[in-house]
Design a protein around this nucleic acid. Structure first.
Lengths: 219, 219, 219, 219
DNA sequence: AATGAATGAGCCTTCATTCAT
DNA sequence: GATGAATGAAGGCTCATTCAT
């Protein structure tokens, strides 16, 4: 009654009587809030306010805060996987393919800060929720398969050195792309933000490609 | 485990009437809790319980939760800087020096998970507290100076390619070393934890050295 | 008298599921407490205990202590204004009307000590809350209008001296009626309480009427 | 240690080693704070900060907050009494004497808002502390004696009506003078502050004199 | 005569959640 | 399928005060 002005705002909602739309709306709002403040730092009320609904609805659809967080996490990983599926490297020469994969990852991470922050937060929680989400264990290996194919081809052509680990390669690409987004704040406070200007990022992107490529090249 | 059970415990405390010891104790306990749960997720009571003191003492020494968090952050960065000071690379040939610096960073990050988690959390908070802490802005550049010297020497000897950016190099070393600790949970849930076994880490450490070194080598 | 003893009492409450009744109940209890102890001196818990509810409900309905105080203040002024509306002086000769108005004010203030104390307290706070309450600025002028009519009539009839200020007249009536309640404690400690006995009050009331009336009379 | 910056400021204090000066300083600071915020609203820390001393000193000199409040109250009444003693009305004709007494009271109250506010607050507390202070009961009757003499003279000269009560007269003078200061905030919010402009106060002062004088005059 | 260190008790407020329809 | 009303539990913080020298 007094705690929120839900009553008036509800009239504005366009998705009345459309459960799926409500769910999606809550999920979207929750993603933003969880990405911003983490699980502990997020207020259920803020999620509700963001879409002019009542807290009650959130519990109605997602049981509790953790349930909502889990749903957000799964949804976020699903989106990322779907984006990865789109990347087509078939037919490219190994070096070109690898370069393109690195560039894609770097760009994709930059463009999806919310996802990065959700993952940061989940790591703060020791991955306890992602562990519970069975849907996330099986897949996510398309990248690895792609990298395997690239490595195989590169080795066969004699341009890559043998014995490369696609998993480790992926790990390195991820590390450099992830850190660029995740640690920007503290890094720029301490070392200045020249690396994060538009120019700085273009250069960094190129150097990351160089770094990864040079490390797989046969001598 | 009510707060009144403190009464008994207080008798055990050895630092009565020693403000500096109390401060240090609180700081240590707070670091652990903040590293575990972040700023929002940490309960002041849990910090107090950890050292058998009362919440009151924490406010007495640090004004409020944020003040304590800030102090923990500054202290943590200070420790890291001090550790960096200890590393002596003088007289080593460039490649050897760079390798040692990477190894040191990698090991140091692995051994200081609390620090990594504090930084993760601070990045979740957009670096707002580190921004306030004037003590952290000026310094932290010893690493950069070391890398500059190494690069200069490497270029002069003709083993490194010219035009290297010490800052970017530091950034890459940090990214790979940091991510190894920060994202271990989610990465191992999705891709298995072979990379994080003792053997896996030894290999990864070597590969990171290779990756960094190969990227600076003159062709 | 711990707060958990509420559990039992809650069963007794008759206004469950009736928001307006709850609001009114809290308001009534709060008025009593704020009148007794002022804003700073009042404990939210005491208000809650007074009506067997929890502190939580108070914040649910009024956001915070200040919000409740503001609501109490507005409600109290509103009640007083409503009482003033009831007073009908039409058709009475000027002197009679003025006398009746003074008597009414004197009696009304005596009978509403809580209101007086709220106003005292609000003055201790430099009127900061009443200033914020826009609802209290506009009206409250019915008394002034009544006094204006009385003065006009009195002057026209030649019984009152010309140039009277209705506002100042109201101020004087208020001062004498208000002080009678507000400063009773200290006055009676220092000068004895003969003025506050039942007889004393009857006499004083008459003398106040005389004082006011004599001051407006044409010589 | 952290809670207050007392340590540094102490050096500034000029009254070191002078107990009476310390006492007086605390008393002065406390008067200001109690006048501003009342007993409950005043923070011991604020009193201490005001004179760069530690809270500890306040308890050292006055035992507890209430003890300090009591001392402030007594001191304040004592000052007022002393001021009253200064007023010499001997030899003046009754009307003139009465007028001058009213003017003096009106002016004195206006100039001593802190005292007024202390009394307001004490009335909020039902005069419980002034009741305890035995020093305040006996005296304070000089005003009454003066008024008695004025009334006697006035009656004898035939200018005043017989049967006047000096006590009630004092009460009326007090009411009008006190209310002018005590209720200024709320009154001006509701009715505008024309009465409290410099001009308004001059007029009001005169009207109060008129009101009082007219009420004692023989017809 | 004075003080640095410490604290129990309680304050206002917030949070996720459930009750009842 | 949806919602207005209500709430237990705890959270950060503040207050006057005392301990110990």
């Amino acid at each position: 009654m007094t705690e929120s002005s839900d009553a008036e705002n509800k009239r504005v909602r366009s998705w009345k009587q459309d459960p799926e739309a409500v769910r999606a709306d809550i999920l979207r709002a929750a993603k933003t809030e969880f990405a911003k403040h983490g699980l502990a730092g997020t207020r259920v009320k803020d999620i509700a306010d963001r879409i002019q609904t009542s807290r009650r609805m959130i519990f109605y659809y997602f049981s509790d805060k953790e349930g909502l967080y889990r749903a957000v996490l799964e949804e976020a990983y699903k989106s990322v996987r779907e984006a990865e599926e789109e990347l087509n490297l078939d037919g490219l020469p190994p070096i070109k393919a690898l370069s393109k994969l690195v560039e894609f990852t770097f760009d994709h991470h930059r463009q999806n800060e919310d996802f990065i922050r959700l993952v940061m937060n989940e790591n703060m929680l020791n991955g306890q929720y992602i562990t519970q989400s069975t849907s996330l264990h099986i897949t996510n290996t398309k990248v690895i398969k792609q990298l395997s194919r690239i490595c195989e081809a590169g080795v066969k052509e004699g341009v890559f050195k043998p014995g490369l680990s696609p998993l480790e390669l992926h790990w390195q690409i991820s590390a450099l792309s992830f850190f660029n987004v995740s640690n920007r704040s503290t890094f720029s406070v301490i070392f200045g933000n020249e690396l994060f200007s538009e120019d700085g990022q273009v250069t960094m992107r190129q150097h990351i490609v160089d770094c990864i490529v040079s490390s797989v090249l046969a001598k």
